[in-house]
Design a protein around this nucleic acid. Structure first.
Lengths: 351, 351
DNA sequence: ACAGTAACCGAAAGCGCTTACAGTTAACGC
DNA sequence: GCGTTAACTGTAAGCGCTTTCGGTTACTGT
């Protein structure tokens, strides 16, 4: 039993003694119960202030069963090198954290951070479980196999998954729907009928959903999407440059519009197209996804899809807290947040 | 007493019963004590695995006095509007958070986030104190008056303060030293003798320290720094533009070099100078501070000072953990991390 | 064979709270 | 005046761990 290094803080007993009441009464005052004489309450509060008393949260948690902490698990990027994609995911995670922290704080909860590295996963997860009332998992932090195991042990919300998981609550944006809207826009507003989708990692659920939505949207308007493994890339600008160069080298006429899985790729694609002497959007329209901050500063400005990133975090926490506070009431298993189409120059709008 | 919503987790008693030992033995196994028969240890570990037992951290904290949580207090930006300066401080805080989380995790601690809004300060602070073994305070999260009060109640590390606080441990970069080096560089390498410093907020300790170091460095080399209230600004690009415009309007010959309190201001200054028909760095050299990501992409590329932001977070946590773990040993009250001069085009280097 | 010792383990006392339950008092109606 | 109720407050039993202290073995050496 090691003693606190700081001047040992006062306890509820000290407050009770000073106020001349029982600890039960102090506790009731602290927790805002009714049926307390105003004079008693005032007396207790006075003593609390005098002693600078702050209840010990560990004791509180132990006794009440609720620790008032929720945990956020995310992938901790290994190194500090600033590859584009790392930087991007960094911003995404950070914004989610901000949103989550705010939402938790609003309800008197705190947010505990758990960065997961591929090794020592289990350790971190166990630590988080032991400390939190519930968890928010960023997508792809844990493998699909593990999520249900966790979810069975502690209330869990999955963030930005593909929405298929039925083991935990899910909060996400509708990637497919957004891309479908882009397809419609390109076909119906800009009369592009030969299209292509530049994918991110083939294994990425986000990329898959975006592709799927785009193809569906295109078909709905009678357009076609090139189907060639050539179009699979890796979310980076340089990856996109390569794809465009190879595609140009085939000699076949290019599609009239290229939708990219994210903004970085779109920027790379535009760059490569220009270098091949093509005009964007006149010859080829290009769109992105994410609405990163430079999207409105490149030339042409980039048409893309804006995700409410902070709100994803906020909503995840709100769903989790609801689940914690009313386990009985059924809460929708999946929450979908709306995206916003940012129509700018690269699709042909806003010239 | 509310019951856990999830299938009530097993306790140390369950493990003990299953293994046929006492809870004391289980506890000892869990905490890696010696003097345990190997067979007993194995038996207990087997039971732990079987029951998926994870010790309740609240109970642990209550009993041992150490919660294995450290808290990070930062200013929560109010709105989601992305003013330049907000964006920048956002990145700074986020990087610190990343660094702190990593360092905490490495020692088996978790990081608890506490975003402070101007109202409801006390509430957040109390919550953090009640949950954490120690706190890291980002600079200017709390007023100077409050820091000592907190520090007296719980071990505290101040991040990026001016190093004057003697009430708590401090981790920071040496703003003054870095700016002094810049002054030396401008004078000795580029032969600029008439200089100016474009300040941030007048009240900002960072800005003050940077100005002080710059002036000192300039004097050391026999150069002079313009001393005119005109040069006080607000860390923003537009603020810097105004300053330059007013300064140009005076008709007096401009200084040969302008050191700015941060990169945003430097970028604004360069913009304004160019618009007035001046060449950077030929006519006027300009430098920044922070090394934001666009610094290497503007034209001319920006000479500036790079801070090890993640490492600030990491170091703060390490100092705090040392203080927690060995309260007896004296730990240096102030830790100063080195900065790196990024010499690029805007000072005249690297043409 | 027996004290002495080391190695190992269990009993039990808390850590600082919350809350069920059991008072105690004051006010009220008849 | 006496039961009845409402409004308060106190007593005490835990919550699930860690750790002190002491007890039980199982070896030593003689």
């Amino acid at each position: 039993m090691e003693t606190d290094s700081s001047p040992s803080n006062s306890t509820i007993y000290d407050v009770a003694k000073l106020a001349g009441v029982s600890i039960a009464t102090v506790s009731r005052v602290l927790n805002g119960h009714s049926h307390l004489k105003d004079s008693t309450r005032a007396l207790v509060l006075q003593s609390v202030k005098e002693l600078q008393f702050v209840p010990n949260n560990a004791a509180r948690g132990l006794s009440s069963g609720s620790k008032r902490v929720i945990g956020l698990l995310f992938v901790r990027t290994q190194s500090e090198d600033f590859l584009e994609i790392v930087q991007e995911s960094l911003l995404f995670t950070d914004s989610v954290i901000r949103g989550a922290e705010r939402a938790a704080s609003e309800q008197g909860y705190s947010l505990l951070l758990g960065g997961v590295e591929s090794d020592r996963q289990a350790e971190t997860v166990d630590r988080m479980i032991s400390m939190c009332d519930g968890l928010v998992l960023l997508d792809r932090t844990l493998s699909d196999r593990e999520v249900p195991v966790i979810a069975r042990r502690v209330p869990t919300v999955l963030l930005a998954g593909n929405g298929r998981a039925r083991s935990a609550f899910t909060v996400r944006v509708d990637n497919a729907e957004a891309m479908s809207r882009i397809a419609h826009h390109l076909v119906l507003e800009h009369a592009r009928t030969r299209l292509a989708f530049l994918s991110g990692f083939a294994a990425s659920p986000d990329s898959q959903a975006r592709r799927e939505g785009f193809v569906r949207g295109a078909l709905e308007c009678g357009a076609v999407v090139e189907d060639d493994p050539l179009w699979f890339s890796d979310y980076t600008s340089s990856g996109a440059v390569q794809v465009i160069e190879r595609r140009v080298a085939t000699g076949a006429p290019l599609p009239q519009a290229i939708a990219c899985a994210n903004d970085q790729a779109a920027i790379g694609a535009i760059h490569a197209l220009k270098r091949s002497g093509l005009r964007v959007p006149r010859d080829v329209a290009v769109t992105g996804f994410d609405d990163i901050s430079v999207a409105r500063h490149v030339s042409p400005t980039l048409t893309t899809v804006h995700q409410p990133v902070q709100q994803l975090g906020t909503t995840a926490v709100q769903v989790l807290l609801q689940a914690l506070q009313s386990p009985k009431r059924t809460i929708p298993l999946s929450t979908v947040l709306p995206t916003t189409l940012m129509l700018r120059q690269s699709c042909g709008c806003d010239q």
